[in-house]
């Protein structure tokens, strides 16, 4: 039930932010729409702890900023290697351990890996993530476990 209420609030925000027309008619239609959406998603059985990974904790913004920084750095590296040409890259495939306990945590970790260019999560089986990296340095950065630790922190707090 808690998830449904959360979902309704988020959906209402989504509607209000998108709409820009605040007449009674439109607002009423919005309320009806949200009710229908919650009903449909209830029947689909997609409203549970897994679908609400966004409102995890207060540390999420901090993680977001850190991730943004990582993305910028990684982008610049990849760009450099694009212009340097094929001789400068050393594609590698490895598996890294994900130390998160829940599925959501693992998914966030895998998606963060994919979001930083230079590394792409190819498979997620059990708690092992198969990663393809463009250059070796990326692998070393991943293996140091910094990102893994931060995602775990996100999960625990």
């Amino acid at each position: 039930m808690r998830y449904k209420i959360n979902l309704s609030i988020v959906l209402a925000l989504f509607w209000l932010l998108n709409s820009g027309h605040y007449t009674y008619l439109i607002l009423a239609l919005g309320a009806v729409s949200i009710a229908i959406v919650v009903f449909i998603t209830h029947r689909m059985d997609v409203v549970d702890h897994e679908s609400q990974s966004i409102n995890l904790s207060l540390t999420a913004p901090k993680f977001g900023i850190w991730l943004a920084k990582e993305i910028v750095v990684a982008n610049l590296t990849v760009i450099k290697h694009i212009w340097l040409g094929n001789k400068s890259i050393s594609p590698t495939v490895i598996t890294v351990k994900a130390s998160q306990k829940t599925d959501v945590g693992k998914v966030i970790y895998a998606n963060s890996i994919t979001l930083t260019p230079g590394t792409v999560a190819l498979g997620l089986v059990g708690n092992e993530i198969m990663v393809h990296a463009l250059i070796r340095e990326n692998i070393e950065a991943l293996e140091s476990g910094d990102m893994d630790r931060r995602v775990s922190q996100l999960e625990n707090s």
Binding site: I71, N75, V78, I82, W83, P91, V93, P117, V120, L134
Partner: peptide, 24 residues
């Protein structure tokens, strides 16, 4: 990124080039 998708040697490396254009 566009140059990368043409220049890189195989599918997996091209994915990184696309990653660049998709994120930053």
């Amino acid at each position: 990124g566009g140059v990368g998708i043409l220049r890189f040697p195989d599918f997996y490396t091209r994915m990184h080039a696309v990653g660049v254009t998709d994120t930053l």
